[in-house]
Design a protein around this nucleic acid. Structure first.
Lengths: 239, 239
DNA sequence: TCCTCTTTCGTCGAGATGACGATAAGCAGG
DNA sequence: CCTGCTTATCGTCATCTCGACGAAAGAGGA
């Protein structure tokens, strides 16, 4: 903590808040990107974000940026702090410390045209990683992906990618998109319906997936998964 | 990311790097604290930390603070970013954004007298939480504890609390101190010796624990634990 | 009606785990 | 040397979970 204190003793540091906003669209994991209109990295794709305001809390800044870029109702979006990046030179203009937030959102039907939403669009993560992003945003994105993949294992957070009511198959497709591996529908069904507090039946059902009508569920109250969601398929055993 | 750019457009923000340094001493989990010599919170206990320097990377700043406060050889200390705190008013003097790092260290034999090490000392976490810390350091400490407890479950990081060579019982006492729950020595032994890459036998043995001589191990190359270290004792089943 | 599709329920063997018994191998004291 | 104490290490067993897969249920379409 600041012991010696002198307003002139510390350097000028700009603080920004950036976002890794993930969603699952057409069975693929996608990230929200904006095209930079100014130097440096003009024309390159970048994560959305902006300066922290004078009297703004960190989560509030993240929520504000999220609303500006997506117009999403922020009661259906999961938002958590990811990490902070401050390597000198990561922004050629000046010393910038960036607090990165991770957001998981359901596939929004209309790309709501907010203030800055015009230039923002969801890009499949594979494409985003192939096309080098501006600044060190490749790294932020990779860190966000790693966090999201890990969290699906031991939290019921996959439901954050789903609409209010969803089927077990829709939830499974979220896992398959984020992890990039196919899962057995039968074992998956047994697992999630057996997990305490993961799913709450709504009583409704739907045939939007084509075959036999599926039960509709909403998110349960659980915050963690015990035991965790097994990720491997085909890997025999670690022990 | 900074789109509009104007050096005068962002407010003056001080960036500090604070540390939650944990160790296990006398079977209890302890945290490194310093006594504040200046206002605000003069005389209160606080986490060690300081200002980020102009051309210093974040992990480098954390490592520097750690060396200043403990004098620990920093090749035996695990250091990772914990979270960033920037709520307006958390420091009454000015806007401060603090990047907090978590460090796990073995019990150092001599409290090496470094530059600032004089005032720094390890305090059992229970005592630290009972005595309110300066600023919002209670929260940083709680977050650090939560992270540490979680990481022991799915990583071999408990060995970071142990010296170069250690016995299974010493490792078990680390888990018991961090989690605050007793573990069955026989099941624990089976688990850690069976986990791939967790422990590497040295061939030596010791009787420093009193009874039958115990094998000495060093840390293995594994970075994660599959399956994870079971935490519950007494809880029958979650399903 | 028959086929196809997806959901949902069962079965089986292979680990993993919790509880706990049994043995091994040191030391202290008589 | 023998007895008792300590702790380390090995086994056993019932229960739970998981992966692989079979089979029935319930809708729509040819």
């Amino acid at each position: 903590m600041p012991q010696p204190y002198d307003p002139a003793a510390f350097p000028s540091v700009a603080v920004t808040v950036d976002l890794v906003v993930l969603t699952v669209r057409a069975g693929r994991l996608a990230v929200l990107l904006v095209e930079r209109g100014e130097a440096p990295h003009r024309g390159r794709l970048a994560l959305p974000g902006g300066f922290l305001r004078p009297d703004e809390d960190l989560p509030a800044a993240a929520a504000r940026e999220l609303a500006e870029e997506t117009g999403l109702p922020h009661d259906c979006v999961h938002l958590e702090q990811l990490a902070t990046y401050g390597t000198p030179g990561r922004d050629p203009r000046m010393r910038v410390v960036t607090i990165c937030y991770l957001a998981l959102a359901p596939d929004l039907p209309s790309p709501v045209a907010g203030t800055d939403a015009a230039s923002a669009s969801f890009v499949p993560v594979d494409d985003a990683l192939a096309a080098a992003l501006a600044f060190d945003h490749d790294r932020l994105l990779r860190d966000g992906l790693e966090r999201a993949r890990a969290k699906l294992e031991y939290t019921p957070l996959a439901a954050a990618f789903c609409p209010e009511e969803f089927t077990v198959a829709e939830l499974r497709r979220v896992y398959e998109a984020v992890w990039g591996t196919p899962l057995d529908p039968r074992n998956f069904h047994r697992k999630v319906t057996g997990a305490d507090g993961f799913l709450e039946p709504t009583g409704h059902s739907t045939t939007r997936d084509g075959g036999r009508p599926a039960q509709l569920y909403r998110r349960g109250p659980a915050r963690t998964l015990h035991p965790s969601m097994p990720r491997s398929t085909g890997d025999p055993h670690p022990g």
